[in-house]
Nucleic acid binder design. Structure first.
Lengths: 228, 228
DNA sequence: TCTTGTGAAATGCTTCACAGCA
DNA sequence: TGCTGTGAAGCATTTCACAAGA
């Protein structure tokens, strides 16, 4: 499925499976926990325990970007964090926008702002006049009409779409026109975007419905539940 | 990765890829849209247009459960909806619980209740005394102490975990002890559960961080953004 | 001796290509 | 003729097994 050439950090020139990219933040979190406990050198076996991924897989994922471990010893936790943050582009702050200040959009704003230091939500957009001008945890809600200007002037490249399904495609078209490159989409629709824009869908209804399958088939040989 | 034997609806006795299970709700949604437009017979090509999946893939997914199309014609939309709903266990109502009545839990409660007829949230749990006894869109918030009793007595098998990371493992242990079989987990931790319990993680920080990769690598040959 | 890094094998999933049937 | 259903082929990803090296 998804691939991407590594040119970013110049280590190699191979294509990276998208599944690997999706695991990198998991490693980052495990490393941060380990470092808080004073760990400085970490093995792939230790990371495996923290993440649930196999040690071989972890080594293979990391090796895509170069050899930054020491044989017989392990990885420097600090170096590894630096490298992964660099690979993901988290070494410089990223501005994001949320479109839709309903229940979900508001919850996401508060949630994100509390958690993420690297990715900051700096603007929220909504078309409800009653909400425009409000501040959600210090971030201002702008009108839909201001969206393109604000996105462009702040060079926001990452957007979270939490609008009703009927509005989503129009919103995404505007976002893309204003320069957004990656979208986290909560609207239950199949958005169409240019090839060079990346959309990650999170569809809560679909997730719940597929879980129903596993509820019903209780007697079966299902996999234990890690990282579905 | 994940497999599951079909015994549910008795059509066959093959193992179903978990990716197929995750696509079934997408087909359901497309079918519902098509039926609203008066479509009664639908081809895999038409479903492909609505879902973004290839027609071969759709045919293969459906064929896992038996042959319910007609060669040269297509699938009966009504029959297909019935069959998929049955396969997923959505032919009878499913009671779900939300644990955690913070911003996210509350947003999920309102979101779910608005959207999903088959899967109904019938209880919310929280340990904040100020919230206990409240009603969120008509669903009562119970204390953490009542959780196991309520889950057991209502035979709730599906739970949504939206508690802080420090509480998540304890909550899940309790849920599993009370009979929950499938969990949608929003807490940023690697939960451990018995093999016969299914956990689907949705981790907003991780999603955002992996999106950062695609924002940075803007000049590259990324895949177009469907169904990442 | 220990753990990384990595070809090779195995597995899982998708796409191809076409037989089968209305 | 047209569209489903399905083996076979082709990819993508994971796991195995072990050489390399501190």
């Amino acid at each position: 499925m998804g691939w991407r050439r590594v040119t970013n950090d110049g280590v190699r020139n191979v294509r990276i499976p998208s599944v690997t990219v999706r695991r990198l933040p998991v490693y980052l979190r495990a490393l941060s926990q380990l470092r808080q406990r004073g760990v400085e050198i970490v093995s792939s076996a230790e990371l495996s325990r923290y993440t649930g991924y196999s040690s071989e897989q972890i080594r293979k994922d990391l090796a895509y970007f170069g050899a930054f471990g020491t044989r017989g010893v392990g990885y420097s936790a600090e170096l590894l964090v630096q490298r992964i943050r660099c690979i993901l582009g988290l070494d410089q702050p990223i501005a994001a926008a949320i479109v839709g200040a309903g229940h979900l959009g508001t919850a996401l704003a508060r949630y994100n702002i509390a958690r993420d230091r690297d990715i900051r939500v700096t603007a929220i957009f909504d078309d409800d006049p009653a909400k425009i001008g409000l501040s959600i945890d210090g971030v201002r809600v702008y009108s839909a009409g201001e969206m393109q200007d604000v996105i462009r002037s702040r060079q926001i490249k990452l957007a979270i779409v939490a609008v009703p399904e009927g509005a989503a495609q129009r919103v995404v078209d505007e976002l893309v026109a204003a320069g957004v490159r990656a979208v986290l989409n909560f609207a239950p629709v199949n958005l169409s975007v240019p090839d060079d824009v990346y959309v990650q869908d999170i569809d809560l209804s679909l997730e719940l419905q597929s879980l129903a399958y596993y509820v019903a088939g209780a007697a079966n040989s299902g996999r234990g539940g890690r990282h579905g």
